[in-house]
């Protein structure tokens, strides 16, 4: 049984693409597509890592990350952040709130896969 990844992303096509890639690599992929209850979903599903988009309806990715880092059980959870805004400021914000890794869309599938593997292997 592969490790468990939770993908929090609102763009259906991107969800489909990432799910496809990770599933083929043997990961168990759960998806969630809004920011409101994302933190609760993370606690419920207790994934081995999450992939988190920044621009989410309801609550943005940085906010979610901050809340995750504040809770003891998710303080060390590996988080790969994805953003389409691609500005330096976003990278700084991600570092500040404690993202494990930060990637800009569009990404290469191989990179995402490698990052997920590396983060969970640690």
């Amino acid at each position: 049984m592969g490790k468990h990844v939770l993908l929090i992303e609102d763009e259906p096509n991107i969800i489909e693409a990432i799910s496809f890639i990770l599933s083929r690599d043997g990961w168990k992929v759960d998806t969630h597509s809004n920011g409101h209850d994302a933190v609760g979903v993370v606690h419920d599903k207790a994934p081995d890592m999450i992939i988190l988009d920044v621009m989410l309806p309801g609550k943005n990715g940085f906010e979610i990350l901050r809340e995750l880092r504040a809770a003891p059980q998710t303080a060390d959870l590996p988080v790969l952040m994805l953003t389409a805004r691609g500005q330096l400021k976003d990278r700084e914000m991600a570092e500040k709130y404690g993202a494990s890794q930060f990637m800009t869309k569009p990404f290469s599938n191989a990179e995402v896969l490698a990052a997920v593997r590396a983060l969970v292997a640690k």
């Binding site: 763009e11 096509n13 890639i21 621009m55 389409a84 500005q87 569009p106 290469s108 191989a110």
Partner: peptide, 29 residues
Amino acid sequence: KDAFLSQVSHELRTPMTSIRAFSEILRDT
């Protein structure tokens, strides 16, 4: 202007992300 550029960037990158991801899938899988 920053907000606008940020928005434009997001709106452009999102479809590009899908296009790249799926074209890589088609190519590599």
